[in-house]
Nucleic acid binder design. Structure first.
Lengths: 146, 146
DNA sequence: TATTAATATATAGCATGCTATGTAACATTG
DNA sequence: CAATGTTACATAGCATGCTATATATTAATA
């Protein structure tokens, strides 16, 4: 009957996620970046000029979440929203020069955090860990879709 | 050089944590509970009358986070803050009858979410997953402490 | 014992994420 | 082509979590 928090995957996952965010945040703060902006930047570094809808689809975040983060990124001089000639409802999101210059140091910071987190694991176990996470994500997504 | 989000443990962990929270939230919302209240309730179900400081130590959350969540729980009729006769600075947190009555259904909901998430994994892999998470948490905590 | 330091909690302000809802532009259809 | 529906985005409001700071009480010390 008893439910042990320390044996609960859900709590451990939440804890681990907070630690990841903290470790990354600490390292990208000097760059003027925050954790929530990071995934959006990754997509735009790969392909500039995406729409908000594109970002929502790629990041599995809610539309409102992305809209708010983009507003803060615009405020912080990381992106510009330009009208989309193909569709008056949407806008193309473009990186500023500043944001483009941050790709190398920022991705390096993320790489370092991943390395620190997985330091004690063998290469096999790292791969297994990522695979297990993928399976869990799949199971939870399936549940979410009824 | 390229940094692949889909190969990044950090992003996968964040994604997984959001899915866990969503799956749990959906199931405890009918009980009038939220995900942030849940860990606090688990501690108080185990031992009523803890102080805020006790909760902070047990949950690895910041003091301000716990204080704010407790305020919402008080507002929602889940807890009462009673003066601590041993120390005028602190208060003892006590569950209401309502909160006590929610232990069984709420822990059951959490159990179900864990089961769904780990459904596709063998018992061995589940244990390994929890163990790997523990190692990663340890590594990140070590990093955080310099 | 009066002062100073430490502790427990509260509060302000912010980022991230959510749901729900509003609005303008585009698409469909009667 | 007008009415209706759909789509893309914005906004409001909230929970969770953080840092920084204020306040009140207790502890330590000069």
């Amino acid at each position: 009957m008893s439910f042990d928090k320390d044996q609960s995957t859900g709590f451990a996952v939440n804890h681990m996620a907070r630690l990841f965010a903290s470790a990354l945040g600490e390292r990208i703060q000097p760059l003027g970046l925050t954790t929530g902006q990071f995934p959006i930047l990754l997509e735009l570094w790969r392909e500039d000029g995406l729409t908000q809808k594109d970002l929502v689809a790629r990041l599995d975040l809610e539309q409102a979440t992305v809209a708010n983060t983009l507003t803060r990124m615009e405020r912080d001089g990381l992106i510009l929203r330009k009208p989309n000639p193909e569709d008056g409802r949407s806008q193309r999101i473009h990186l500023t020069r500043t944001a483009r210059a941050l790709e190398a140091p920022a991705t390096k910071a993320a790489q370092i955090v991943n390395d620190i987190a997985l330091k004690s694991l063998t290469s096999d176990k790292r791969a297994m860990f990522l695979d297990l996470i993928g399976q869990v994500i799949g199971a939870l997504q399936a549940d979410l879709r009824r």
